[in-house]
């Protein structure tokens, strides 16, 4: 009797996805610790000086960037290169706009609650750590955009796009918790 050996190539997508989600979980704990420090150091008080309009605006911008990121991923899965590039570029612009909003927030925060005050410590740590994640997400998206322009991604090679876009959504999920923690919670 003859034995026939069949080589089935291993699909790494499964392992990569698990690895990425484990990374998100570890990052989630970091932000959970920072968010809980707000309640420990400042309780449930809400400073009146917070710019609510700006907080709402940057939240909307980040949510909108998640939509464009989703559209970029969906389009590359269907082989639509043009739509992928347009939406990746839109996500980069919205992410950069969010960072400009955070910079404006910081300019106000330095006047009303400087970093050495209790709320200032929380505010600058949370927005700074999150802003750094947004910045790294923008850098990754720029990398995607330029490689995408050279046609490096397509229906058969979507993992780099999926990984970066998932990271972008994760940054959005974190902000969904930071926004009420800083701007909305009150006693």
């Amino acid at each position: 009797m003859q034995t026939v050996r069949v080589h089935v190539p291993y699909d790494h997508t499964h392992t990569r996805r698990i690895g990425l989600w484990l990374f998100f979980i570890s990052e989630g704990f970091l932000f959970l610790a920072l968010i809980s420090s707000r309640y420990y150091l400042f309780g449930l008080s809400r400073p009146e000086e917070l710019n609510q309009a700006l907080g709402l605006l940057i939240t909307t911008i980040l949510l909108l960037s998640s939509l464009t990121a989703y559209r970029a991923e969906t389009s590359i899965l269907h082989g639509d290169q043009g739509m992928f590039l347009r939406n990746t570029l839109a996500t980069i612009l919205l992410g950069s706009l969010f960072l400009v909003g955070v910079a404006l927030e910081w300019a106000e925060a330095f006047r009303f609650f400087p970093p050495h005050t209790r709320f200032g410590t929380i505010f600058f740590t949370l927005t700074g750590m999150h802003g750094f994640h947004v910045l790294s997400g923008v850098v990754l998206l720029v990398f995607l955009y330029f490689h995408g322009r050279r046609g490096r991604f397509g229906v058969t090679n979507t993992w780099p796009v999926e990984g970066v876009i998932k990271y972008w959504h994760f940054v959005d999920v974190v902000w969904v918790f930071i926004y009420p923690t800083l701007y909305l919670v009150s006693s």
């Binding site: 449930l44 990121a69 959504h169 959005d172 999920v173 909305l184």
Partner: peptide
């Protein structure tokens, strides 16, 4: 709206945040 209209809104905000996070993780991620 809840943050400014409801006294002690923490619990409501947490519930809404969890709904937000679920929507993003399930449909976008």
């Amino acid at each position: 709206w809840i943050a400014f209209a409801v006294p002690r809104p923490l619990l409501y905000l947490v519930v809404i945040n969890l709904a937000d996070a679920w929507l993003i993780m399930e449909y976008f991620m």
